[in-house]
Design a protein around this nucleic acid. Structure first.
Lengths: 292, 292
DNA sequence: TTCTTCGAACGAACACTGTTCTACGAGTCG
DNA sequence: CGACTCGTAGAACAGTGTTCGTTCGAAGAA
């Protein structure tokens, strides 16, 4: 808060704080401020009310529930997700990947919110805006309507789940857990598994732990999109389709180049000392494909 | 509770209840009983303690946390998931689909538990057992190790998220919401969307609402598996691979035949007049094979 | 101007929550 | 027999979401 002029003493001296009256949007904004500062579990009616200089009961005049408040918060957050200007069917996979990463950037920028998203049907205006865009894109690509509709479902789950998982790790780290040590420990645990009962897993401990959150996320998106691609009717397939041929060996696979839209600043990725989800948290400064 | 004999008055009249002493597993079992009866939010330390005829403080001698208790509960639940006798690489997609449905069956049979699973790394013994099986299977199919490893991640998220979403609807229905009416309302809402801003979505309202939870789940699994298939090196591809050619038109796509293990009838579909994800837990008595 | 009305604001309270402190009591070891 | 553990609990602390009943301030009616 910047310096503020003192209240003129003879103007309504009775009420010291010239705060604006309560309103739905003011409450939601305040709640989001608390969310960003202390995580979703820190957003309590009392905490929000206190931030507004009032009591918890006052909030119930504008918001019927804590659940409703949460959903309003989610809507406001989702509204921050930016979309490309228009669908470009010829590079639909790249475009969807970009949107997925943009969504994850925004969601994880607000701590835990994705948990709210996980359990609710996305019918808010902002959510529908994204749905509309993706649906349009998928239809233009040539996917059958039913496939496109159901694909949105899966895509939404993918985004939400990954954002939530990422936030869980961020929260855990914010509470003092050293993720680097934790993952090393985990790797050791996998490595020490009894060979007779877990022969495959035990031998692949390192492979299981490879890759940070972004890499894994990109992989999942790519798998889903390739799967979607296989539902394209024969006549809708362009030559660019990675489809069947480009089998990609183990290490040779690389996440789609995420240029454009997502290229704003370092974002959360590097900031907190490493990976979103797994492995090598010591690589905070890696210049990877992601940053801008 | 069946009728119970009254305690013989002159046998230890001091302590009326001849209950067995507290123990970790007894607490976990009791907690799961409460979970099944009242959902995850009903599992409170006080409630579990009360069920055991004691106070909440007594639990902390065996369980360090509510969080730890939840994870112990998850482990016990996941242990119920049955696996096929051995990997059958020649029908890997069917087998994975079966496992996914079996997992969902078990998870949703215990209300909310999947929420616990969503935020934790699956390192319990039972979870690793499943991981080991799937990893073995995927490697036998010929997937590159790194792809197989990361695929497990995605598969786990798919299972957990879908189970959680299903449970959310079940819980909501248990609280009295009529899902049929709710989805009709939702369909109407989509249909009434302003045509200028949501042209695609508005016209596809019905398509968006088509399909029950199982169908959508099967679709997502199929997409993921087809995507995975595209990572098979050329030499590992059998003729059976649906891969590129069998493009499937709009309505012609059908979920993979879920024989054996998952062969439980119509499920809840008819009940709520449509889509969604909830319901039909009334078929717990299916005699599926797959045991072992 | 005065009176009524009505919804927003809010203090207090209710019934909960997870967790900890501390005392009690039985069992075992020396 | 005393000392010493350790599982069992009662009570309490600091919170939680939500509701009740009241107050208050401004707008509309007389």
């Amino acid at each position: 808060m910047p310096a503020q002029m003192p209240a003129i003493p003879w103007h309504k001296p009775r009420k010291a704080d010239p705060r604006q009256p309560l309103s739905r949007s003011l409450i939601v904004e305040t709640a989001i401020r608390v969310l960003d500062a202390e995580g979703l579990s820190g957003v309590t009616m009392r905490r929000v009310a206190q931030e507004l200089g009032t009591g918890p009961a006052s909030l119930y005049a504008h918001v019927s529930n804590k659940e409703e408040l949460f959903e309003l918060m989610l809507e406001r957050v989702v509204a921050e997700i930016r979309l490309p200007l228009r669908p470009e069917p010829e590079r639909w996979k790249e475009q969807i990947t970009e949107i997925c990463f943009e969504a994850q950037r925004v969601l994880t920028a607000h701590r835990d919110v994705s948990l709210v998203s996980l359990g609710s049907i996305p019918i808010g205006e902002s959510q529908l805006r994204i749905t509309e865009f993706l649906l349009d894109l998928l239809l233009q690509v040539g996917l059958p309507p039913q496939v496109a509709a159901w694909a949105l479902d899966g895509l939404g789950q993918l985004i939400d789940t990954d954002a939530y998982e990422a936030s869980v790790y961020t929260e855990r780290m914010a509470r003092g857990t050293d993720l680097g040590a934790y993952f090393d420990q985990l790797r050791g645990y996998l490595h020490d598994l009894p060979t007779d009962r877990f022969p495959t897993l035990q031998g692949m401990a390192d492979t299981m732990m490879t890759g940070d959150g972004d890499q894994r996320y990109a992989f999942k998106i790519e798998v889903f999109l390739r799967g979607l691609e296989s539902f394209l009717p024969a006549e809708a397939r362009t030559g660019a389709s990675a489809g069947a041929g480009t089998g990609a060996g183990a290490g040779t696979w690389a996440p789609a180049d995420r240029a454009g839209l997502v290229s704003d600043g370092p974002g959360w990725h590097g900031a907190a000392g490493g990976s979103g989800r797994a492995g090598g948290s010591e690589r905070a400064d890696d210049s990877g494909p992601a940053g801008g």
